[in-house]
Design a protein around this nucleic acid. Structure first.
Lengths: 145, 145
DNA sequence: AGTGTTTAAATAGCATGCAATGCGATTGCG
DNA sequence: CGCAATCGCATTGCATGCTATTTAAACACT
């Protein structure tokens, strides 16, 4: 483990991400949702009726990843994909009534995971953490974008 | 995106983790290695000849996840799995000569990813980030462990 | 010795993520 | 207008991660 010292940031972050995902999975399970669906749901709760390409830009994952997630969400009765009269290449994604009804509970569940994760650190520290994370994200993005 | 505010920590961390993984994948690719193999390699570079169960404890992933990673590493000529004379349920994992030869370069590649990720933040900030991350990790672990 | 429990691995099934391709629809430009 | 380039999406193939289950071996305790 001592060897980890030089590059433990990546390891630590990966570990944190897995724990967050597991906690979110547990919190969302009672509502029949999974962590991977959550960003898409947030985007559609915010503005229903977007195309896949719009969602990809908003969520920041690759298009094939979203395509598969949307298929699972369609299978699970969370969304429908309607033809787009303005451009027949794309389709308009709509939430089902059921998905709309889950908004409050799901957001509360996710918020509580976050609150729990940050429970042991002070508010200013949490802010600092978010700030540093944002800076690391943009640094890592530079070369790839 | 405004809705993200309340629970953006999990989202931010997930995003960071994906960027780290992608950067590490790119850095390791020339050496024929993948990010998921790296923790196992570190553990075996540190001490060769461990069992799967020992590695699981050390690395902190689930046993089936490691089993599959080890299969891929075996397929790729990085490890061998020898019978354990002391306990025929388990097998002793050994690095191949080739995997041993990759140590310096792979560690340098991973370290450079880390250095790049942290390039834009001060040393004390990086330390703080690591500390806060560690505290979030142990908080999230509490309920599940 | 014999049986029940624990332990080590393997396997099945699933969710997310990626890169690379293919394909039809649209757009832009000569 | 017509063709080339671009765009939107689907699909394929792969890597990682998880949970749940199975199998065999080792242990423990009567």
């Amino acid at each position: 483990m001592s060897d980890f010292a030089t590059f433990s940031a990546g390891y630590r972050v990966a570990q944190m991400a897995r724990l967050f995902e597991q906690a979110l999975a547990e919190a969302l399970r009672p509502h029949g949702l999974t962590p991977g669906q959550f960003p898409t749901l947030l985007a559609l709760w915010h503005r229903d009726g977007q195309t896949q390409a719009e969602l990809v830009r908003e969520i920041g994952i690759e298009q094939p990843t979203l395509a598969l997630t949307l298929s699972r969400m369609e299978r699970d009765g969370l969304i429908t994909r309607e033809p787009n009269p303005a451009d027949s290449r794309s389709r308009i994604i709509h939430l089902t009534r059921h998905a709309r009804s889950l908004k409050e509970d799901a957001i509360a569940a996710a918020a509580s995971v976050n609150a729990r994760a940050l429970a042991e650190i002070e508010d200013e520290e949490a802010e600092l953490f978010m700030d540093l994370s944002a800076r690391i994200v943009s640094t890592l993005r530079e070369r790839t974008d």
